[in-house]
Lab assay of single mutants.
Amino acid sequence: EVDTLELTRQVKEKLAKNGICQRIFGEKVLGLSQGSVSDMLSRPKPWSKLTQKGREPFIRMQLWLSDQL
């Protein structure tokens, strides 16, 4: 189980620290539009309420944070 709230907090922190905009992060890392990324980072759904497809971007965020992506 992933703590989506904590994960998105860490992602936002790393984006800010490295000067990466959400649009680029969305396109290059998540394969999503800036609007989708913005929504996901500001209002993450609980892991238990996400479908497999809904969980994929959060898994990619985890990999990106651990420099595996």
Rank of each mutant, 00 (worst) to 15 (best):
K17I: 04
E27G: 11
G19D: 11
M61A: 10
S33Q: 12
Q68V: 11
E13L: 08
G35I: 06
R43V: 05
E1M: 14
F25W: 11
I20W: 09
T51G: 08
L32D: 03
I20Y: 07
F25S: 01
K45H: 04
E27V: 07
W47C: 00
S38C: 02
Q62K: 15
L65C: 02
M40K: 12
S66A: 12
S48H: 13
E6W: 07
K14C: 15
R55L: 02
T51K: 09
E13Y: 10
K14P: 06
R23T: 07
L15E: 06
Q52W: 06
G26I: 04
S42L: 10
L65F: 06
I20F: 11
D3S: 10
K14I: 12
T8I: 09
R60P: 00
K12N: 04
V37A: 08
G31T: 04
S48E: 09
I59G: 03
A16D: 11
I59A: 10
T8V: 14
M61F: 07
Q10K: 15
G31I: 01
Q34I: 13
Q62W: 13
C21Q: 07
E27N: 09
K45C: 05
P46K: 10
L69N: 11
E1W: 05
L65E: 00
K28S: 09
V29A: 03
E1S: 11
S48P: 05
I24K: 10
L50Q: 00
Q10D: 13
V37M: 05
S48C: 13
P46G: 15
S36T: 13
G31M: 03
D67S: 10
R60N: 02
L41K: 06
K12H: 03
K14L: 13
L30D: 01
R43F: 09
L41A: 05
L30W: 06
R43W: 06
G26C: 12
L63E: 14
V29R: 09
M61V: 02
K14D: 01
G35N: 14
L50A: 01
F25L: 03
S33W: 08
R9N: 11
R23D: 12
A16P: 07
E13D: 15
P46H: 10
L63N: 13
K53N: 05
L7S: 12
L41H: 03
M40L: 15
Q22S: 10
L5V: 14
W64P: 00
W47I: 01
A16C: 09
E6C: 05
K17E: 11
S36V: 15
R9A: 12
G19C: 04
V11Q: 05
L65H: 01
P57C: 08
L50R: 00
V11W: 03
Q34E: 05
E56L: 06
D67V: 01
I24P: 00
S48M: 03
S66D: 15
A16R: 14
R55G: 01
L15I: 10
F58E: 01
W47M: 01
L15K: 14
L69R: 10
K49S: 10
N18D: 08
S33P: 14
P44D: 02
V2A: 10
E1V: 06
F25G: 00
F58V: 01
M40G: 04
G26N: 07
L41S: 05
